[in-house]
């Protein structure tokens, strides 16, 4: 009993310390009441252990993974923070994404860490197989363009699900993209093989309509997301681009939606906007499967790149 009390006091102290950053820390007296209450019924001791924080976002509210590794839709960045943690934990989210296009094959994998539903740090590796196009462009049959993307996103204010119905969750993000094929992207006319994107996103789940809306503004120089480098000798300025998503919740586990993303055409190769229609399903708390029909327009003069987007995501 004495040990229990000492442990209770220890845990209480730890909890008080952990919550000292939040606005209304619970008093040790209140915690003590809860411990006493917990001991009164069956399994009380086990329940005391449960005062340890646990990760428990509502299903799908960690969103899926955008191709650049951030939490979002498949092609757009959202204000959501990756991982299943809420305001008091650390969560992780990993994804493998493939995109089958008429003339290309795209594959990426990424890992994102969410801290206290406040900060997201992400990494993604993108591999873009040029298949026959590589031979046609003279860079080699099946030449693969590769890129690393390091991202950071911070939630400024607002809540995706709770809080004021008309105030969205708003986040600022930046992404450092490093293309690993500098010689190729310079040959196609890009100025740099690395660059930084800046994003501001607002996302809200309008529960009364079961609809999630996302809008993102992005400052970028990237050509085809950076896979064809950054800027061009003709146009090396940042441009403001837009990303939008509209999602309908059919059930807790199943949502359908569409996304739109505008892109600059610095290289004057006919680069156009991206568009997709997707369905995401969460068979368990930790798994999200996403399938989409994606229209990526013209890529390196090869037009009508429409195909299937498939993503498997694990989150904890």
């Amino acid at each position: 009993m004495m040990w229990q009390n000492i442990m209770s006091a220890l845990v209480t102290t730890l909890l008080a310390w952990a919550s000292s950053a939040s606005a209304q820390p619970v008093s040790t007296e209140q915690n003590a009441q809860r411990f006493e209450a917990a001991e009164e019924f069956e399994g009380g001791e086990e329940a005391v252990a449960r005062f340890v924080d646990y990760n428990g976002k509502l299903l799908l509210t960690n969103a899926v993974s955008a191709v650049d590794g951030a939490s979002g839709g498949g092609i757009s960045n959202w204000a959501t923070i990756a991982g299943r943690q809420e305001t008091r934990g650390i969560g992780v989210q990993a994804n493998v994404t493939t995109l089958f296009l008429p003339d290309y094959f795209y594959q990426s994998h990424g890992l994102a860490v969410g801290i206290a539903d406040r900060l997201e740090l992400s990494y993604a590796r993108q591999n873009f197989d040029t298949q026959d196009v590589g031979a046609a462009l003279g860079i080699g049959q099946g030449y693969k363009l590769n890129q690393d993307v390091l991202g950071a996103k911070v939630r400024l204010f607002g809540e995706l699900v709770y809080g004021e119905p008309l105030i969205p969750q708003v986040a600022l993000g930046l992404q450092y993209k490093r293309n690993l094929d500098g010689a190729v992207v310079e040959a196609v006319g890009a100025v740099d093989d690395d660059g930084v994107d800046f994003t501001v996103s607002a996302t809200k789940l309008f529960l009364s309509h079961s609809v999630l809306v996302n809008t993102t503004a992005r400052l970028t120089k990237a050509n085809q997301n950076g896979l064809l480098g950054f800027g061009s000798t003709a146009d090396d300025d940042y441009s403001l681009q837009f990303e939008g998503a509209l999602v309908y919740q059919l059930s807790r586990r199943f949502v359908v939606g569409g996304e739109y993303r505008t892109k600059p055409d610095n290289l004057k190769l006919g680069e156009g906007d991206w568009f997709d229609l997707f369905a995401a399903y969460a068979p368990t708390r930790n798994i999200t499967l996403t399938a989409a029909y994606a229209d990526l327009g013209s890529i390196a003069t090869f037009e009508d790149q429409r195909g299937a987007f498939v993503q498997t995501q694990l989150a904890f």
Binding site: Q30, N31, D53, T87, G89
Partner: peptide, 13 residues
């Protein structure tokens, strides 16, 4: 004073 966390609210939901 219940000490409710956001994850607890999610569990309730």
């Amino acid at each position: 004073g219940l000490g409710t966390r956001k994850a607890d609210l999610n569990a309730l939901v």
